Amino acid sequence: MSQTLSAKICGVKSPADVVAAAQAGARYVGFVFFAKSPRCLMVKEAAALAAEVPLGVAKVALTVNATDDELDQITSVVPLDMLQLHGKESPERVAEVKARYGLPVMKAIGIADAEDLTQIDLYSDAADQLLIDAKPPKNADLPGGNGLAFDWRLLAGRKYWQTPWMLAGGLTPENVAEAIRMTGARQVDVSSGVESAPGVKDADKIRAFLAATEVRDA
């Protein structure tokens, strides 16, 4: 018996990216609003892309320490299903954003060692979902999308979390099945792992990634 997990293709930049993600079976697509990222979109670009996303695929806006003014602009123009906070937002800020915009909020948490797992409990009550990602290196320009993985053994046996969570960080078509087996993840997120160059999605890699998330039970 096989089980297909939910996958998010983050950093889509073109209608072709959206089509490839949707046709391959992605449940989420991510629009990046962070100027330093090679995947960054202007608000009007994201609005046009959002119109291409079929029903059943959730549209997620990734922001980093965004102000209310910035979020106001994004949410007023782009039809979204979820906000992803990928900066140093506190649990209180997560709750504020959720209340202000009436959208589900996913909070990214960077993991490098076991001590970082304590952040999960801090955000579980405030966020609707958690993105468990690799902690970026010191002085890194990007908070995510760096193609780095963390030690997946840190998550082994931790299926008791009540808040839905998504595994991210260094996932590729070649390693995502192993990551799922080691962590018990039911959702996965990929960006650089399905690109041919920074910010350039590869349709074949997207299809391969989604195919690899189909895990067959023993």
Score class of each variant (00 low, 15 high):
residue 120 I to F: 06
residue 39 R to N: 02
residue 217 D to H: 08
residue 164 P to D: 09
residue 65 N to P: 10
residue 115 E to M: 05
residue 155 L to P: 01
residue 157 G to F: 14
residue 40 C to G: 11
residue 65 N to S: 11
residue 53 V to P: 00
residue 132 I to F: 12
residue 70 E to P: 11
residue 181 R to H: 11
residue 65 N to I: 11
residue 76 S to E: 11
residue 145 G to D: 02
residue 147 G to D: 14
residue 80 L to W: 05
residue 152 W to E: 09
residue 93 R to P: 14
residue 89 E to S: 01
residue 57 V to Y: 09
residue 102 G to N: 14
residue 140 A to K: 06
residue 216 R to F: 12
residue 162 Q to M: 13
residue 146 N to W: 09
residue 41 L to Y: 01
residue 200 V to G: 04
residue 118 T to R: 02
residue 16 A to T: 08
residue 20 A to I: 01
residue 147 G to I: 07
residue 158 R to A: 11
residue 154 L to R: 01
residue 118 T to Y: 07
residue 20 A to E: 03
residue 55 L to H: 08
residue 195 E to N: 14
residue 54 P to Q: 11
residue 81 D to I: 00
residue 131 L to M: 04
residue 24 A to V: 14
residue 112 A to M: 06
residue 129 Q to T: 09
residue 209 F to R: 02
residue 63 T to A: 09
residue 198 P to H: 07
residue 170 G to Q: 09
residue 101 Y to D: 03
residue 128 D to A: 15
residue 11 G to N: 06
residue 169 G to Q: 08
residue 121 D to S: 12
residue 5 L to N: 00
residue 66 A to L: 02
residue 108 A to S: 13
residue 117 L to R: 03
residue 149 A to N: 14
residue 199 G to E: 03
residue 135 K to E: 01
residue 14 S to L: 04
residue 19 V to S: 09
residue 32 V to K: 04
residue 13 K to Q: 08
residue 50 A to F: 03
residue 205 K to F: 02
residue 201 K to N: 08
residue 5 L to V: 00
residue 121 D to I: 12
residue 15 P to L: 10
residue 66 A to N: 09
residue 80 L to E: 00
residue 218 A to T: 15
residue 17 D to C: 15
residue 79 P to Y: 15
residue 30 G to P: 15
residue 60 V to I: 12
residue 83 L to C: 09
residue 125 D to L: 09
residue 189 D to R: 11
residue 89 E to R: 01
residue 184 G to A: 13
residue 101 Y to R: 10
residue 211 A to M: 05
residue 107 K to D: 01
residue 1 M to S: 12
residue 102 G to E: 11
residue 137 P to Y: 12
residue 144 G to E: 04
residue 36 K to D: 14
residue 30 G to N: 07
residue 19 V to M: 12
residue 10 C to L: 05
residue 76 S to M: 09
residue 37 S to T: 03
residue 35 A to R: 03
residue 129 Q to E: 14
residue 123 Y to A: 00
residue 134 A to V: 14
residue 210 L to M: 06
residue 196 S to V: 06
residue 157 G to Y: 13
residue 215 V to N: 06
residue 95 A to G: 12
residue 117 L to H: 01
residue 165 W to I: 06
residue 85 L to I: 00
residue 192 S to H: 05
residue 113 D to P: 12
residue 176 V to N: 00
residue 84 Q to R: 02
residue 95 A to V: 13
residue 48 A to Y: 08
residue 16 A to K: 07
residue 33 F to M: 00
residue 95 A to R: 07
residue 172 T to A: 08
residue 185 A to N: 08
residue 145 G to C: 05
residue 20 A to M: 09
residue 147 G to K: 08
residue 65 N to A: 02
residue 114 A to S: 15
residue 11 G to M: 04
residue 26 A to T: 11
residue 95 A to M: 12
residue 218 A to Y: 13
residue 184 G to F: 05
residue 178 E to R: 15
residue 72 D to W: 10
residue 41 L to W: 03
residue 82 M to A: 03
residue 182 M to T: 13
residue 162 Q to P: 05
residue 134 A to E: 10
residue 96 E to P: 03
residue 198 P to N: 12
residue 72 D to E: 14
residue 152 W to A: 04
residue 187 Q to G: 10
residue 99 A to E: 15
residue 58 A to L: 15
residue 171 L to Q: 04
residue 125 D to T: 14
residue 98 K to L: 02
residue 112 A to D: 04
residue 167 L to N: 07
residue 67 T to V: 15
residue 78 V to S: 14
residue 78 V to R: 09
residue 206 I to W: 02
residue 84 Q to Y: 05
residue 30 G to M: 04
residue 94 V to M: 09
residue 170 G to P: 13
